[in-house]
Nucleic acid binder design. Structure first.
Lengths: 237, 237
DNA sequence: ACCGTAGAGATTGTTCAACAATCCTGCAAG
DNA sequence: CTTGCAGGATTGTTGAACAATCTCTACGGT
């Protein structure tokens, strides 16, 4: 058969299949439950400070208490829940210190990733383009929550360009925690709209290979974003 | 009583007691089990690749299977175990890619921390001094494992100077994973000894406030360390 | 009216035993 | 040599039970 003597490229679909299978297999009950809760938390349905009762949730989600607790653990490790001994789990109420801590980490990682880029294949930037366009479309419809989501994905894809497993993982958690902060403030438009254009400009710098300048821009970008978020946070209801 | 009007320093023992109490209280059975296993793994008793059977361990550690599984989860999150669905947990077998990934993250975080330091209180460097001296003492007795441990602590304390909760957490996991790599190679002396002097020199730069230069030195330091480890890794048994 | 305390009720922490689902091994058939 | 199929072993999940701890309320003393 051709597949036995074909070029290595023929095996690419095998990897895709394997990935799909893994994605299908990996879902234990606990992880499925964690997915549901993660969605509710990052979407802001569960406000910071609210407690997640074991008894109520196990009925609602149709799983055993042990499995539910396992899901709690997963989310706790992601920073989306905090666990207080003998008291239960709560959606965390992040502080100003958390905000600064998160942005510090963000600046370090994202800027370093961008600065370290080299000889990027234009195809790799495709997801970033899609995110920018998604944000622009959502902005036309004044759907600022979707704008925020698209911006988040832009940054996750940006970091993904480095191909570092651990940096990707950390960034995922980092952005999830950041979302927690977005939900305690009341002006989503002011927080997301300005960065659509900046994301596009960043993308253009990447497309033309100006990585060092992109990193500097990104640093300033993140400092501005931090300042705006901090101000909104202090003026929250 | 004097303690009510004394200087803030008087309350230091209170914090220590509170920390101890918290450490005692917080330690659920699962965390105690995790401590035991963590020690075994980081000490190299459990070699990379070995499986941790639930049935055997629950008898050995005298806990229920659920508690054991929870301990597994804790260690999995720290990167000290990997979980394969329906197959169990294993001590991870890190690859060359992991080595490079870990060092990349290490360089970014540690160098940024050092570069961002300012107006350090000399007392804050005390733990670092203790670590350097511990490494030097252990080197005299040719206890290279202890040297490695002291070096690790030096770096953890170094990162701790930044006061960032998240960076501390990430570094803890990072160094734990790094230890996993040390155990698959056979020349502990060559990997740890050269860095005792470099740690001391780094400490002196910090003591004299030369943070920018310290950061540059640290970067070169880590690149050398990575290269040495990589070489030893390729030549492993 | 204020404060500390005791106790009831509710929630979480931990264990156990059982069953379901999946993986690994070895063997037989094509 | 590959494929398919038992069998045994291990993990995944559940439900119930009990212990430990927290929260809230009511009581009594000052």
């Amino acid at each position: 058969m051709a597949s036995e003597i074909g070029p290595p490229a023929d095996q690419s679909w095998l990897r895709a299949v394997a990935d799909d299978a893994a994605h299908f297999d990996r879902s234990s009950s606990a992880e499925r439950v964690a997915d549901v809760l993660r969605r509710r938390i990052t979407d802001g349905v569960l406000r910071p400070g609210t407690q997640l009762s074991e008894e109520s949730l196990k009925d609602a989600l149709q799983v055993s208490r042990n499995t539910l607790r396992e899901a709690f653990r997963l989310l706790t490790h992601e920073g989306l829940l905090v666990h207080r001994m003998h008291r239960g789990v709560f959606v965390p109420d992040l502080t100003e210190d958390d905000l600064l801590d998160l942005y510090r980490l963000r600046r370090v990682l994202e800027c370093d990733v961008v600065r370290g880029l080299a000889d990027l294949d234009p195809a790799q930037l495709e997801p970033l383009r899609a995110d920018v366009e998604a944000a622009e479309s959502a902005a036309v419809e004044e759907d600022w929550i979707s704008v925020g989501t698209a911006n988040m994905r832009f940054h996750r894809h940006l970091v993904g360009l480095a191909g570092s497993t651990r940096i990707n993982e950390i960034t995922g958690r980092l952005l999830a925690e950041l979302r927690l902060l977005f939900h305690v403030i009341a002006t989503p438009r002011a927080l997301h709209e300005p960065y659509i254009a900046r994301n596009r400009s960043l993308l253009e710098l990447l497309e033309t290979g100006q990585y060092a300048r992109a990193a500097d821009d990104l640093n300033a970008y993140l400092l501005d974003s931090q300042a705006a978020l901090l101000e909104a946070f202090r003026a929250r209801a």
